[in-house]
Nucleic acid binder design. Structure first.
Lengths: 127, 127
DNA sequence: CACAATAATGATAATGATTATCATTATTAA
DNA sequence: TTAATAATGATAATCATTATCATTATTGTG
């Protein structure tokens, strides 16, 4: 197993993700980090997103379109707006759902992810 | 707006999806339906999956890899096995999570999807 | 400090999943 | 039965993501 070496690109990707509360795609992150490190490559962004996710430092949110990423790993839930396709945080207790797991389930559950679909406050206001 | 015309390909895709309880990819469905309609094209499978989903007859499950599909639309939850990458049904009351929605949320929620991650019974037995 | 080992990078080619195109075929309503 | 048009199969195109590879940066050691 190879040992991690630090890189300013990886630091910048993580810092960007931790500084924002939307849920950007790899492309979004690429564009943002490029303001700070103009030479950064999209491949490096993808590489580091994968690495950071496997380290447990960020979350990947599959959406059916481009994956989105979240720099805040404490349990919380999301809403996907079916109008603007954006993903926002919701303020709900993350515990409730796990309590509902049936006792007789033969597998092992290690985590869960809850996605709500609907209209986000911004889109609701605008329409 | 164009009016739907029936096709045996679309019927076969829907029938296949409704007859099974795994959560196949478009490719899986293509291979299965080809046993019945050897001339069917993968493009036709994708086309009809999209159409059936927009009609609300099937569910698309984003996974971060290939999308998976579900022919049973009554509310229920899934477990993604982090070992075999399969998706199985879980037997939990779908109501609990919606009750947890905060009252002061300014948007509108129309549906939700809960994905558990862990080891499925088959993989747990085998290892 | 100098250096060797190797992880990380940027550029870009390759892949895999999904969608678009287009000529042909099938379904439908009149 | 026919005209209108939705659906198909074949395949090209697109989009997101990953792999490759030569070069650069980081790190531990003498």
């Amino acid at each position: 197993m190879s040992t991690l070496k630090s890189s300013k690109q990886r630091d910048a990707v993580l810092a960007n993700l931790q500084s924002r509360y939307d849920h950007p795609t790899a492309e979004d992150i690429f564009l943002a980090v490029r303001e700070v490190i103009p030479s950064i490559s999209l491949a490096t962004v993808y590489r580091n997103l994968k690495l950071l996710e496997s380290e447990g430092l960020i979350l990947k949110i599959p959406t059916g379109e481009s994956d989105r990423f979240d720099g805040h790993t404490q349990g919380h839930y999301h809403l996907t707006c079916i109008n603007c396709r954006g993903v926002i945080d919701l303020d709900i207790d993350p515990g409730v759902t796990l309590n509902a797991l049936p006792r007789d389930f033969d597998g092992t559950v290690t985590s869960h992810s809850l996605m709500f679909y609907g209209i986000c406050p911004d889109c609701k206001k605008t329409n």
